[in-house]
Simulated assay, not measured.
Amino acid sequence: MSAEPRAWEGVLAHIEAGLVEGDLHPGDHLPAERTLAAELGVARSSVREAIRVLEAMGLVRTQTGSGPTAGAVIVALPVGGMQALMRLQVAASGFPVADVVSTRLILETAVAAELAERAEAVDLESAEHLLDAMDDVSLAREEFLTLDAQFHLQLAEESGNVVVAAMMAGLRTSIESYVLAAASGLTDWDGMAARLRAEHRAVVAAIAAGDASTARHRIHDHISGYYRDAALTAPIREPHQEPSW
Rank of each mutant, 00 (worst) to 15 (best):
S102D: 14
G170C: 00
S66E: 04
L24Q: 07
R201G: 06
S224F: 14
Q241M: 12
R141M: 00
P243E: 00
P5H: 05
A140L: 09
A149Q: 08
G27A: 14
A119N: 01
E238W: 15
L85R: 11
E199T: 11
A234F: 12
R52N: 12
M82D: 12
D229N: 12
A37Q: 03
Q83D: 14
M168A: 14
H217V: 11
E49D: 11
A76Q: 09
F95Y: 15
L36E: 02
S184A: 10
A92M: 00
M86V: 02
A112W: 00
Y178V: 11
A17E: 07
L88D: 04
P26S: 11
A76D: 08
A231S: 05
A113M: 01
H129W: 13
M167D: 08
G210C: 05
P96G: 09
A113I: 02
Q150S: 15
R197S: 11
V60H: 03
G18V: 04
G27W: 05
R118Q: 12
M134Y: 07
P31V: 02
D28A: 01
E157A: 14
D135M: 03
R216V: 09
H220G: 12
H14R: 04
S184L: 08
A113H: 00
H152P: 13
D211F: 04
V90G: 00
H240C: 13
A91K: 01
L24V: 09
V162R: 12
V42L: 00
E55F: 03
R201P: 08
D123Y: 10
